[in-house]
Structures are given as structure tokens and as C-alpha cells.
Simulated scan of single mutants.
Amino acid sequence: MRIPFITLALPALLMAAIPAQAPAQESAAPREGVHYARIPQGAWSIVAQVRAKPGKAAELREATLPLVASVRSDPKNLVYFLQEDRVEPGHFIFYEIFATREDFEAHNAMPYVQAWFAKLPELAEGGVEVMRMEVLGQSRP
């Protein structure tokens, strides 16, 4: 009985194409980013939005993008995302988590945050709308 080549070769090709999982995981660099275990139950979360004045979307984006690196470098910041509406450019949403209200207030007092706020009257309609939230669903230590 003659067995077609494809029948024998396909499993071998598939096995060769699948990388070994254990060595790849051992050599992989640690992931950076959100570490959910660091976020305490009841953490201080902020969801905020700001909208650019007509014709000011690019300027507001340029003024706002540097906040990402600055805020994420703050050791008291646990999560920080800046997002822009794909349908309405110039509409920005911020998602931030700090362990406590005091940590968030200290963040807002930072010179780079105050400098950003000072630019808003020229660039944004109505300033920043802020919702102060509480993180739920985290396990307690």
C-alpha cells in the first residue's frame, strides 16, 4: 500500500512550525504594563474627558501626549491610558488609577499636570470632565 506524501509530511511540518513553549516562556522578558495585583480594592480611579475646540485637535493632542510618559513614570500611578475617539478626533478619554485619593491629588499638583491644565482654555471646550470612581473586584491582601 502506498501512503501519499502529504499524509506523512503534514504532521511533521506542523510539528516543526509549532515553537516549543517552555524555552520561549523562560527566555521571554517580563511584561511591562498593568500589574493587576498591585491595584488595591477601592483604588482611586479616574475617567476623564476633554474635547478640543474646533481646529485645535492636533494642538491638544500634541500638548497631551507627553503626559503619558510623565504620568506612567510616577511610582504612585498604577494605570494610565490616554485614548482618542476614532470617530471624533480631538475627543480624549483618560483612564487613571492611583491607590489613594491623596496619590491622585499629588499627581494633579505636579508641575507638568498644572502646565497642561493652563493650556486648556486655549485648546479645549469646557475644560476636563472628571468622574471619580472606585475600583471593584480586586482581592484584598
Rank of each mutant, 00 (worst) to 15 (best):
L10M: 14
D74E: 15
G33H: 09
G126A: 02
Y112I: 10
A115Y: 05
A106H: 06
R101K: 08
A9P: 05
F117S: 01
K119H: 03
V130M: 08
E122P: 00
H91P: 01
P30A: 08
P111H: 04
G137D: 11
Q83Y: 00
E122I: 04
P23K: 03
P11G: 04
L82Y: 02
G127A: 07
A63T: 13
K53H: 01
L136Y: 12
A118R: 13
E59A: 12
K53P: 12
T7Y: 15
F81N: 08
E134K: 15
V113D: 07
H107R: 11
H35S: 03
Y112C: 13
E125C: 04
V47Q: 09
K76T: 09
E102Y: 10
A16V: 10
A24W: 01
M110W: 00
R72Q: 12
D85C: 03
A69T: 06
T100W: 02
N77E: 11
R38W: 08
I97N: 00
L13Y: 10
L14N: 03
M1R: 08
K119E: 08
E129F: 02
N77R: 04
A124L: 03
V79Q: 00
E105L: 14
M15S: 09
Q83E: 07
A20Q: 15
Y80L: 10
L82T: 04
D103P: 02
V113T: 13
F5K: 12
V130H: 04
K119F: 04
T7D: 12
A24G: 07
R140A: 14
S139T: 05
S139K: 14
L82V: 11
P40H: 06
A37S: 13
F92C: 01
A29Y: 10
A118Y: 05
Q49W: 09
E125Y: 05
T100C: 06
V68S: 06
Y112D: 13
S139V: 00
L65N: 07
A22E: 08
W116T: 11
W116Q: 02
L82D: 02
K56I: 01
R2Q: 12
L67P: 06
S70E: 14
A57T: 03
I6D: 13
M133R: 13
V135K: 03
R38D: 07
E125A: 05
S70D: 12
D74I: 02
K56S: 03
R72L: 10
P141I: 06
Q114E: 14
A69M: 03
S45D: 01
F104W: 05
E88N: 09
A37F: 11
S70L: 15
Y95H: 02
R132Y: 15
M1Y: 07
L123F: 01
L78G: 02
F92W: 11
W44R: 10
L67H: 09
F81C: 07
A9L: 15
H107T: 07
R31L: 15
K119D: 00
I3N: 12
Q25F: 00
I6N: 10
L65D: 05
A57R: 05
Q41G: 14
R140V: 08
